[in-house]
Every structure is written in C-alpha cells, then in structure tokens.
C-alpha cells in the first residue's frame, strides 16, 4: 500500500536560461520549482491518500537544492520524504536504477510522476522505471482512482480519451490533470519544515552514480532571430502571403 510520487526540481517555467562557457548557468536561475506535470501526480496521490489508500512517499533525485521540492510536497500532505542526493548528470539507466531501489525500499505498489519533466522534456523515467520494477504502466493520465485492488485511470490513448483499468503494481505518468492543484496552508508549511528528509547516496542504494553513458558536450542558446519585417493592417496580407511563398518558400 502507499503511493510513491517522483518529483523533479526544474527551473520555474518563467525563468530565463543563460549559457556560460558552453554550459547552462544554473546560478542565474532565480526560481526552482516542482516540474508542472509532477504536481498533478502529487495532487492525485494526495487525493488517493484522502480516500484511504495509504501514505504518500515523495522521492526526488538531484542535488541538494532539490530538497526544497520535498518540503513543498510535505506542505500539501506528503508523509515521507526521500532525497537521492546526486550532484552529477545521470543517464536514464542510472536514474531508473536509483528510483527503482528507493521505490522498492518504500514497499509502495503505485508510483506516480509527470509524463515528462519541464527541463529535458524526455519522458523516459516513468515507462523505464515500470520496466525496471516489473510494474504495469499507464502513461499520459489525467485522473487515477483506486477501488479494491483495481486502479482506474483516464488517459489520452492512440484512439482518443479512454478509461482504463489495471490491477497490481503500476506506474502512472500524468498529463495535465483534471484536478485543481491545492495550495499549502500556513500550518502545512510549518509542519513541513520540521519533517525529516531521508537523504540517500547512490552508493546507499547500490547504484554506480558516476559512469554516465550519456555525456553532455555542450549547451548553447538558440540562434537569435534577426528582426523581421513588420506590416501595418490587413491590407498587407497579399504582400505577406507572396513573401511566404517567394522568400520563405513555405507554402
């Protein structure tokens, strides 16, 4: 019983990203936040807890700054907080091995996270973790409820929006959910500050946290756009359409 929620700390989506020396300059990022899709996973896990499903364990993997998203999760109702402390860049296999080991330790048989994180936008963790754990997997859900041993979810599948059912241990990844996200109240925030965080190293979990098979070579800014041509009023449409064909060659 219990739900493990995986949270990734990412730059707030309003943050400007600057590059320094071929690398994203993290020190220039003013605000970090829980990745938006992960917030829907957290909300759903807390709703399950309120319907009697057991504790919510919030897990994050990342450098020391990431502990903040665990405290934020505690403020809205997460019961146990696990921080897998890693300072280096990890490949998908390392991330999944770390998360798998910590989910196993919690004994949770439901795992929830966002369908992708707002930094890399990859979406590898949920389905990869399900394989690693040997759990079932349902991706891109907007709602999950549990009745007896059966979980029911709404997902956007290949043939449209559909309701699916799955029994046994399962990983769900969230799209933008149906529920409004709750905001923490003052009492929640105060309690959360006192909540202990279990901090674990990759070694504690029996995973090699160094030899990433994916190595970041370079970061760069997208090419600056040259100022374009500006036209006033809808009278300019014929001229613009001609340019789309003749200059841009896109229609």
């Amino acid at each position: 019983m219990g739900v493990a929620v995986l949270l990734k700390q990412v730059p707030d989506t309003t943050a400007k990203i600057s590059i320094s020396g071929g690398k994203v300059d993290e020190s220039s990022i003013a605000k970090w936040a829980i990745s938006p899709y992960d917030e829907y996973a957290l909300e759903s896990a807390i709703q399950l807890k309120e319907s009697g499903f057991g504790d919510v364990v919030a897990i994050t993997c990342g450098p020391s700054r990431a502990a903040k998203c665990l405290t934020e999760a505690a403020a809205v109702g997460a019961d146990r907080l696990i921080h897998i402390l890693t300072e280096s860049t990890l490949d998908s296999i390392q991330v999944q091995s770390l998360l798998s080991a910590s989910v196993k330790e919690t004994g949770c048989d439901l795992v929830m996270c966002g369908k992708q994180a707002a930094d890399t936008n990859s979406g590898s963790t949920g389905p990869g973790l399900a394989s690693t754990l040997g759990f079932s997997f349902v991706g891109g859900v907007t709602r999950v409820s549990v009745n007896g041993g059966l979980a029911s979810a709404t997902r956007l599948g290949p043939s449209g929006l559909e309701e699916v059912e799955v029994g046994g241990p399962c990983v769900f990844t969230f799209d933008k959910g149906e529920s409004e996200l709750r905001r923490p109240n003052v009492r929640g925030i105060m309690m959360a500050k006192k909540k202990p965080i279990d901090s674990l190293s990759p070694e504690d979990l029996g995973v090699n946290g160094t030899n990433s098979l994916v190595i970041i070579k370079d970061h760069s800014s997208p090419p600056e756009k040259q100022p374009g041509q500006k036209f006033i009023g809808s009278e300019s449409i014929p001229e613009v359409v001609e340019k789309l064909r003749e200059e841009a060659n896109v229609i």
């Binding site: 490949d91 998908s92 296999i93 999944q96 369908k115 992708q116 890399t120 936008n121 990859s122 979406g123 590898s124 963790t125 949920g126 389905p127 990869g128 973790l129 399900a130 394989s131 690693t132 997997f137 991706g139 891109g140 956007l156 290949p158 098979l213 994916v214």
Partner: peptide, 20 residues
C-alpha cells in the same frame, strides 16, 4: 507519445540508455 514510452520501456529492459 507512444514512441517515447515504448523506447523508454525497451531500453530499460535491455539496460541501455535512452535519449529523447
């Protein structure tokens, strides 16, 4: 969406890294 999920799951099964 399905391409990403499948290749994540397959790469995890094989123990090889995936880049999306």
């Amino acid at each position: 969406a399905i391409g990403r999920e499948l290749i994540s799951s397959i790469s995890a099964t094989k123990g090889i890294p995936v880049v999306q």
